[in-house]
C-alpha cells in the first residue's frame, strides 16, 4: 500500500519498514533509503537544518511520485515519510521504503522515488553555519539523476 506523510516529529526508519511490510506475504524484498543530516556542507560546519514545505502541495507531489513508481514497476507498496522543521546532525530527514516480490523492482523503485523527490517535491533546506543562516542551493547532479529516469521512460 502506498503512503506519504510529512511530519515535524523525529523519524523512526525501522517503524516505517515494519509498517510497510506488515501482513503482506507477497513481499519478498524491501529496499529503504534514509536521508540523514550531515554536519558539513560546501566545506562549512552545519549545526542546524530547517526544512520548509508547501503544505498540501508537498503531499500531493509525493503521492504522484509513488504512484508513478507503482506504474513503472510491479511493487507491493511504497512509503515516503519526510521530516520538516528543525533538525540536528545525524537526524533522519527522509525515509523511502519500497516493497516488491523480488529485489530488482524494489531497488529501482526506491532509487526512482528519491531521485524524483529531490527535484519535484516542494521542500527547501536552510542551514545554520558559523557564518549564519543560508538557503541551500539545488544541485545540478540531482537534475541529472532525475533526467536519467525521463530518458528511461522514453525508451519504453
Amino acid at each position: 500500500m502506498n503512503y506519504v506523510h510529512v511530519q515535524s516529529e523525529p523519524l523512526d526508519p525501522h517503524r516505517e519498514v515494519d509498517q510497510l511490510r506488515a501482513d503482506n506475504p507477497m513481499i519478498g524484498a524491501v529496499v529503504s533509503f534514509i536521508g540523514l543530516m550531515r554536519d558539513m556542507n560546501e566545506g562549512d560546519k552545519v549545526d542546524r537544518l530547517f526544512l520548509e514545505h508547501y503544505p498540501g502541495m508537498t503531499e500531493k507531489a509525493l503521492l504522484k511520485i509513488v504512484e508513478e513508481a507503482s506504474r513503472r514497476w510491479d511493487l507491493q507498496g511504497c512509503r515516503v515519510v519526510h521530516r520538516v522543521g528543525e533538525m540536528r546532525p545525524t537526524d533522519p530527514i527522509v525515509v523511502v521504503v519500497v516493497a516488491s516480490s523480488h529485489r530488482k523492482e524494489a531497488f529501482l523503485g526506491c532509487e526512482f522515488v528519491i531521485d524524483y523527490l529531490k527535484t519535484q517535491a516542494p521542500f527547501w533546506k536552510k542551514e545554520l553555519t558559523e557564518g549564519g543562516e543560508r538557503w541551500v542551493d539545488a544541485r545540478i547532479s540531482d537534475d541529472e539523476a532525475e533526467e536519467k529516469w525521463r530518458s528511461a521512460s522514453s525508451d519504453d
Binding site: K60, I93, K125, A138
Partner: peptide, 29 residues
C-alpha cells in the same frame, strides 16, 4: 511555479480563483 498545487510552467493558464506559487528550485530529501 505551481498552479493549484501542481507544478506549472510559464504557459500554464490562470483564471480567477486560482492559487499560484513561486519558489526556488527544491532541495528536500
Amino acid at each position: 511555479a505551481a498552479v493549484n498545487q501542481e507544478v506549472a510552467d510559464q504557459s500554464t493558464p490562470l483564471k480567477d480563483g486560482d492559487e499560484v506559487a513561486f519558489f526556488p528550485p527544491v532541495t528536500g530529501g
